[in-house]
Computed example of a mutant assay.
Amino acid sequence: MKEIEGKTTSGGKILLGAFLLLILSAVIFGIGVYKEFNVLIVLGIVLCVVFIFILPGFFTIQPNQAMVLILFGKYTGTIKKEGWHWANPFYSKKKISLRSRNINGEKIKVNDEMGNPIEIAAVIVWRVENTVEAIFDVDNYVDYVNVQSESALRHLAGMYPYDNTEDTHTISLRGSTDEVAEALKNELQQRLGKAGVIVEEARLSHLAYAPEIAAAMLQRQQAAAIIAARQKIVEGAVGMVQMALTKLSENEIVELDEERKAAMVSNLLVVLCGERNTQPVINTGTLHN
């Protein structure tokens, strides 16, 4: 359904006219009673009933609020202009907020792309854009947003791994927060668009392995970190050994045969790659002793 602008009248003008009508009805009723003229009495009562009938037509709208007007089941328009309004008293009125709202989702347990159980939660900022779709296309737009938000988060979690297990550029929930947030926002917008809702922001607020595998995954992460660190150490040590041999040869400090080079390389790698400080041994003999 297409949203259309409703038509109302200023509440102040109608209120002034209503009070004048009330005064007129009181005067006519009083004259009728005084002169015992039944026609004036009836006219005064009718004018008083009209005054009472006018009162339900008044309503106010605050900034970032809207009022949907319905006449005998037919949508007639939406009022978004703040102020005091008056409309046909037969209108059914549904007030709806256009302000931004937050959903601080509860932690839910799902499986990521690799099948690992994880805990995940999201914070979502949304607002109503189309009042007609929010009122008439879904039963309760607030419940609809809550249910679809959880469904979208579960679907998103199953699309990506929790973390990259190898040195790749694959998008992961932990390592690609911006990409995951954008994907979640797009997923929510597709689902909530039919309810006239605009998703302004969506981000993960909690992400962790489930308790039953958290310890094992922590050990795997620690092992991966140790391996990565040792690789850097070995690469640096090999470079240092190569530089030492090159400098010795270029400066003609000592001439080493292949066997002595191998021994020197072995000793330097032990010193550079060892986890503990080495204890030096001074050789007081010749190079070959």
Rank of each mutant, 00 (worst) to 15 (best):
E150W: 05
E82A: 12
M67Q: 12
A152Y: 04
I118R: 01
F51C: 12
W84Y: 14
E166Q: 11
A134L: 02
I120S: 06
D137H: 15
A134N: 00
Q65I: 06
Y91L: 05
T76G: 02
Y160F: 13
G115R: 09
E113Y: 12
R99W: 02
Y160S: 00
L98G: 02
R154I: 04
E166K: 13
G44K: 01
A152D: 04
K74Y: 09
K109V: 13
V138T: 09
L43G: 10
M159T: 14
P63R: 10
I108P: 05
V123R: 13
A122T: 01
G83D: 07
I135K: 01
L98I: 07
Y34F: 13
I61A: 02
N140H: 10
N64I: 05
M114P: 00
I108M: 08
T60N: 14
F136G: 03
D139T: 13
S92A: 11
V50L: 13
R99F: 03
Q148R: 13
N38W: 15
I54L: 11
E36V: 10
R127E: 10
I52R: 03
E166C: 01
A157R: 01
P161H: 09
I79C: 04
Y75E: 07
C48E: 06
V42C: 03
P63A: 08
L40T: 03
A121R: 08
N164C: 05
E82L: 10
Y144K: 06
V46K: 08
E82G: 06
Q65A: 13
K74E: 12
I103L: 15
S97E: 10
F90L: 15
T131R: 08
V145W: 05
L156Q: 04
Y144T: 07
G73A: 01
V147F: 10
Q62R: 15
N64H: 14
N102D: 14
G73E: 00
M67H: 03
N111L: 15
A134C: 07
T60F: 15
V39L: 15
I70Y: 04
E119R: 10
I103M: 11
I45V: 13
L98H: 05
F90H: 09
E36C: 04
N38S: 14
T168D: 09
K109W: 09
T78S: 08
G57L: 06
I61D: 04
V68C: 08
V145A: 08
Y34K: 11
E82S: 14
K93M: 12
K74I: 10
I120C: 00
W126K: 06
L40G: 00
T76Y: 06
I124R: 04
K107T: 14
V50P: 02
L173E: 02
G83H: 06
W86I: 07
R127C: 05
E129G: 03
F72R: 13
K94D: 10
T78V: 13
F51I: 03
I41A: 02
K107P: 09
I124D: 02
G105C: 08
P117L: 03
E166D: 13
G77P: 03
G57H: 03
D112Y: 03
G105Q: 09
W126D: 06
T170Y: 08
D137N: 15
F59T: 05
G73P: 04
E119D: 11
T168S: 14
W86S: 07
